[in-house]
Design a binder for these strands. Structure first.
Lengths: 296, 296
DNA sequence: CCCACTCAATACCTCCAGGGTATGATCAAA
DNA sequence: TTTGATCATACCCTGGAGGTATTGAGTGGG
């Protein structure tokens, strides 16, 4: 049996006349007669009673008509859904984000993606950079968001946004009283750095910036993420360089101050990471949204 | 797209290897490759990612695998159900019975049919003989049960059972005192006859039997059915000839007495009626049960 | 009562597409 | 580098789907 048989059968059942059905199917009458006979023979069931006025369904034929319509509808639906899946409009994508630093860009980006692709389920996983790389290789996720990504053999990187750096200081800290804080001031104050974990990280960026200006920072404490870092600033552990988006973390007694006289490239990127050669249309759609987000 | 494509696709998806799938399908590898390519092209979707180790499903492919299995199962089920319908094991049959005279044979018969064909819904309709004939011609029913059926052009008759006739009399009636009631006695007592309606009916049978013995019965009352007839007997309207099965009607003060010295053919048939040339397998199965019932 | 009409079924032909064999291209592991 | 595994391509062959012409059967009008 074939889908063709079903199509032909439904046409004959609806027209109750082989000639008309053949016309509707754009074939001639004899082949249609034969197909119906074949179908009946294969099922071993008489589907039509032949009358001099045409063909009428038997009871078994009525039942089979229901089933045939059902099957045809299902096939229709299957192709449609599969096509949407193939265009990245239906399915699921597993996305990794890091600790707590997802404070601004990522929620907006995910919102934009959901608006454009409401039938794609986005599953978020919180992972460190090292975990993201492993999960990508094991195909547990398709994209990861992170900062300070070094180029890798099998993974591709794409920049999402760039943020200026601000200094988190206690409101009662001497630096907080200055009109503007020169970058070089940092050498006199203990710094809270983050995140610990896989290198290179934001820590190295900060140390690099300092050494460009010819000093080594005093490291007060290394912590896992920006939230903890700002908490320690509030606790008097020193000052902390944070990406601009961290200002959404409103901590009582902590202010975010811009620096002046900064080294060039005084900013940090947010990038996303995905497998080289990943042909998933959903990933493509996701990266498309990422690119559009970057433009705005 | 074809059911063949689905079959092939499922095989490849399950084997994750075209060669093995081809072996399982008893075809060679190249045609299978081509069929998969065709399917992908028709859908416009990449269903597999080709690796040097075989084929793995894309996300869209996973989805389509689900759908394909679904469709194939539905096709399987459709053929199976249609075949059962074609064998008269699944479906519905509309059966007409007459007024209240269905006191013994028909319930047993329907029970036997339901036991053999549990998935056939038997729908009962109460109709007079004339209504049955009309309903058969209009295909509203497939079988009717009745008595005294004259041969018809387009309808076939089949005898179900034959019953002896008994006389319903009041217990205090003079005839009830006799050891045996000779048939000729009927000429001296008013008779309740049934049913009214389309001729020939049981009425004509009784009148015929009397005239065979050279007398005309005194007609006390004509009524619609046996139940009413026996009720009138209880009310003193006279006596009434009833088929044996009517004895299941236990009426206070009414007894059923056998007659002696009866004319030949002193009995009445229960027959069923169906369209000539009706090829319905359910009707065939039903008539099969009727035939088996008749034997027992 | 017969003829014309309407359908479905049959006979026979053509041609395309599905299947086969042989071979190529690519990648991984030994 | 070689070998083995896997998918893709090239080319041929045959079965079957579709076409035309015709037959057979049953109905209704003249």
């Amino acid at each position: 049996m074939d889908l063709r048989h079903l199509r032909y059968f439904v046409a004959v059942a609806e027209e109750e006349n082989i000639g008309r059905a053949a016309a509707r199917l754009h074939i001639s009458q004899p082949p249609l007669t034969r197909q119906i006979q074949q179908l009946e023979e294969e099922l071993g069931v008489t589907l039509f009673t032949r009358t001099p006025r045409g063909m009428t369904l038997t009871q078994a034929g009525e039942l089979f008509l229901d089933e045939a319509r059902n099957i045809r509808a299902l096939v229709e639906q299957a192709t449609e859904r599969t096509q949407r899946a193939g265009q990245g409009k239906l399915g699921r994508i597993d996305v990794a984000i890091f600790g707590s630093a997802i404070l601004d860009a990522i929620p907006k980006l995910l919102l934009a993606f959901r608006n454009h692709h409401p039938d794609v389920k986005v599953v978020l996983h919180t992972m460190t950079k090292a975990e993201q790389i492993e999960a990508l290789r094991q195909r547990r996720i398709s994209v990861g968001f992170n900062r300070m990504l070094a180029p890798l053999e099998d993974l591709e990187t794409r920049q999402v946004t760039t943020e200026k750096l601000l200094l988190a200081v206690r409101a009662d800290h001497p630096l907080a009283r200055l009109e503007s804080i020169p970058f070089a001031e940092l050498q006199h104050h203990p710094l809270v750095l983050f995140p610990t974990g896989a290198r290179p990280s934001f820590i190295d960026k900060v140390i690099g910036l300092c050494s460009e200006r010819g000093f080594q920072p005093k490291i007060s404490q290394e912590v896992g993420d920006a939230v903890t870092g700002v908490a320690l600033v509030a606790g008097g552990f020193g000052v902390c360089l944070v990406p601009e988006s961290a200002t959404t973390l409103q901590f009582p007694g902590v202010v975010y101050a811009p620096l002046s006289d900064t080294p060039p490239n005084f900013k940090v990127d947010l990038s996303c990471l995905y497998r080289k050669g990943d042909a998933s249309p959903i990933l493509a759609a996701f990266l498309q949204t990422v690119a559009e987000y970057g433009k705005s």
